[in-house]
């Protein structure tokens, strides 16, 4: 099912081991990521979804080595970043690339597309001459479907559309032939009409180059489309609350938060226009609690439709495997759902 493969000895490509990130601010410490365990295998897609502010970007930046975590470890091919020598660090840097959300901010406004692509090629000795760099840059642009490449090489970012810029950003991430691309909301600032084109291009890279992805989005439809065959992790207030195979989680969500997210997705199928879907959508509150004053017990309890007093507001539910009928591995952190599943298991 999963397209990704762990290397022979079962070591994942990248692994987050109980990572934490606490930002110290004037108002107090903000625990943006609170103990996240995740891994990606070679060639695999891991989608990260959740509301804004739930810590997706922070987690991704930790994974890409752009910010050291304040707790926990990041392992690349089984080696902890903090223990790496400089040679290994270079391998990691080249192996994991980050694509930012905003294509208007992520390209240097005063450098041409060619200059942007040639710099890493020359610096890392992948291109020995200007001509060589030019040819390789052409090939990269073709990979991201910017054709004919010669038309784009001498352009400045402000001469490109949003979709074209994002393709250039992806081409730049590809210069060092990474084994993992961490893409943070890479399509959310693009128009619907060009979004799919970019997603298709990224899928093509996945199959043709075997690149792994950590793909962040708040759009579940996009997670489903791009993450097919991979895994998905649903985050809430700095924690993973549900984790499993993408299709299974979306078809059969278990955690009340995942269900609420799915029920909130607007659809335009004729039979559902204007329809108000099930009860699960009826969250008890819409406002996300502040990270400065996290609720006791399960942090979702002030909003949760399944909230049970005395249980949910006292004990923090751990993220543990749950035997979902007819499904593969699933991790869920919820007291009530776990009980219900256990009962159903006894009943049958």
């Amino acid at each position: 099912m999963t397209t990704g493969t762990a290397s022979a000895d079962g070591t994942p490509l990248l692994q987050l081991d109980a990572v934490e990130q606490v930002f110290r601010t004037k108002k107090g410490d903000v625990p943006a990521v609170r103990g996240v365990d995740l891994h990606v295998n070679e060639g695999e897609v891991l989608c990260l979804v959740g509301e804004s502010g739930c810590g997706k970007t922070t987690t991704a930046r930790i994974a890409a080595g752009l910010a050291p975590p304040t707790g926990g470890r990041v392992l690349y091919r089984g080696r902890a970043l903090s223990e790496m020598g400089s040679e290994e660090k270079v391998q990691y840097r080249r192996g994991v690339q980050f694509v930012h959300q905003d294509p208007y901010a992520s390209l240097n406004p005063i450098r041409t597309v060619f200059a942007t692509l040639a710099a890493p090629l020359r610096k890392h000795g992948l291109a020995t001459s200007r001509k060589d760099a030019w040819e390789q840059a052409c090939r990269l642009l073709e990979q991201v479907d910017l054709r004919p490449p010669e038309n784009f090489l001498s352009k400045y970012p402000h001469q490109l559309s949003g979709g074209q810029r994002q393709r250039v950003a992806v081409a730049r991430a590809l210069t060092l032939k990474p084994s993992l691309i961490v893409a943070d909301e890479a399509t959310s600032m693009l128009d619907v009409s060009i979004r799919v084109g970019l997603l298709k291009m990224l899928s093509k890279l996945r199959t043709e180059l075997g690149t792994g992805f950590v793909f962040i989005t708040h759009d579940l439809a996009i997670a489903r489309y791009f993450g097919t065959g991979g895994r998905i992790a649903v985050m809430y207030l700095g924690r993973v609350v549900e984790h499993g195979l993408t299709e299974e989680v979306i078809e059969n969500p278990q955690h009340p938060y995942t269900r609420a997210l799915l029920d909130a997705v607007p659809t335009m199928d004729d039979d559902e226009v204007g329809a108000v879907a099930g009860e699960a959508r009826k969250l008890r509150g819409v406002d996300i609690p502040s990270l400065l004053a996290l609720p006791s017990g399960c942090t979702f309890h002030p909003r949760c439709p399944l909230f049970r007093e005395g249980l949910c507001d006292t004990a923090d539910p751990p993220l543990e495997p749950l035997a979902v009928a007819g499904g593969a591995d699933r991790d869920v952190s919820c007291h009530v759902v776990r009980e219900a599943v256990a009962e159903a298991g006894r009943a049958s």
Partner: peptide, 22 residues
């Protein structure tokens, strides 16, 4: 803190280049 600088940094372009070219 701008994203294009971060991108240059994660491509390991070297301090002098990032500072004086980017």
């Amino acid at each position: 803190e701008r994203e294009f600088v971060e991108a240059a940094r994660s491509l390991d372009l070297g301090t002098l280049r990032v500072v004086f070219v980017e």
